[in-house]
Design a protein around this nucleic acid. Sequence first.
DNA 1: AGGACGCTGGAACGGCGTTCCAGCCGGAGG
DNA 2: CCTCCGGCTGGAACGCCGTTCCAGCGTCCT
Lengths: 223, 223
Amino acid sequence: MTTRTRRTERRQEPLSRERIVGAAVDLLDTVGESGLTFRALAERLETGPGAIYWHVTGKAELLAAATEAVVVPAVAADDTDRTPQEAIRTLALGVFDAFDAHPWVGAQFSRATWRPTLLRVFERIGRQVQALGVPEPAQFTAASALMNYIVGVAGQNAATTRAVAPGTNRADFLDATAHAWSALDPGEFAFARGVAGRLREHDDRTEFAAGVDLIVAGITGGT
Amino acid sequence: MTTRTRRTERRQEPLSRERIVGAAVDLLDTVGESGLTFRALAERLETGPGAIYWHVTGKAELLAAATEAVVVPAVAADDTDRTPQEAIRTLALGVFDAFDAHPWVGAQFSRATWRPTLLRVFERIGRQVQALGVPEPAQFTAASALMNYIVGVAGQNAATTRAVAPGTNRADFLDATAHAWSALDPGEFAFARGVAGRLREHDDRTEFAAGVDLIVAGITGGT
DNA sequence: AGGACGCTGGAACGGCGTTCCAGCCGGAGG
DNA sequence: CCTCCGGCTGGAACGCCGTTCCAGCGTCCT
């Protein structure tokens, strides 16, 4: 039976930038940042490393494309029938959840190749700032502050929770951390020791959202 | 003249963890993150790569030690004779300036090896939060919010300004960015186009400090 | 039918982090 | 004084990485 009856699947579906970026996101999600390798990517796509370079220029562009593929949908929520405050909150939580689900994304925003993606986030935030009625001269500063807070704090949070070994649940991790803090030097780390117990009951996501609301309140005049 | 008259300089001052970390910081500052190589480090220390491993366990520990060497002095300012608000502001600007002077530090805080350093920052912030008179149940949340803002936003700012090619000055860079934004698609990037001109006159450091003040005001009750 | 070309994928290169180990060198013990 | 020993050194080597190169496949145009 050497004859192939099914001619339509020639060898496989052809390579494409989309398929490559998709496989890269998968690899980053499952094996982590160090697991994204041109060789591993080639194996998953059943090809050689060289073929990938026909579609992307190198690893930097690949990481940028993977970042964009994750972040852009997360900030593309529908705005209609929402107050600007609600829209900003939704957008912020979209970024937060995307960073949380794909811990490698936060690190990308500390590197140099993120610019187009960040500009998209800035644009969406800026439009809501306009809708808030912020006067034109203050719009740039207001949008910058919000964007820096959202991307910066969400990234910082993702870096913190990434320390959790995969498989352990959040409660166990917080328990272990609280225990470690309680054992710190009482002189040097008095404050951390004292608040160690609060670790168990706090909720990063809620506190992140509260921070967004606080900045929005500050922007709109605080009156 | 094959005889060595100077016997005192045997070969060099001996290797030590301190000297290695110092050279690593130098290398990171001058050549950037990709310039920190065990081979380059060995050459600068006039030794071989193997010798370095007697003093540090690997590159991860080396990066963590370099980060600590830069950040800890930056947050160790003298607190006496300051209001808590002033102390927090000074601390925040210390982190901001350290991240700005050593752009590779911000990226470290998105990775997994920063924990001891971050805890030191948290401790210092927490003590000032206590001094502000924040009630005990809210201290943890308040200190977390401040720390996340300070580290997150300072890191984000450092990543943005790092895009500047070394040698170009800030005004030229802002000019070029403003020009690029003005050329964006009017439909997709209406807001960014509109505020492009504001880029030239804004000051990241001042706006960062204003954000810190805003959060402090929110923490202390906002009355 | 034949040529051209987009696309493939395996081989190869230089450089990386890391490991290994032969040997140096200063001080403790005879 | 010599000898031995162990902390410390530094160069060689290993495996893996990103990237480049190129012979050849398949498809479409002429």
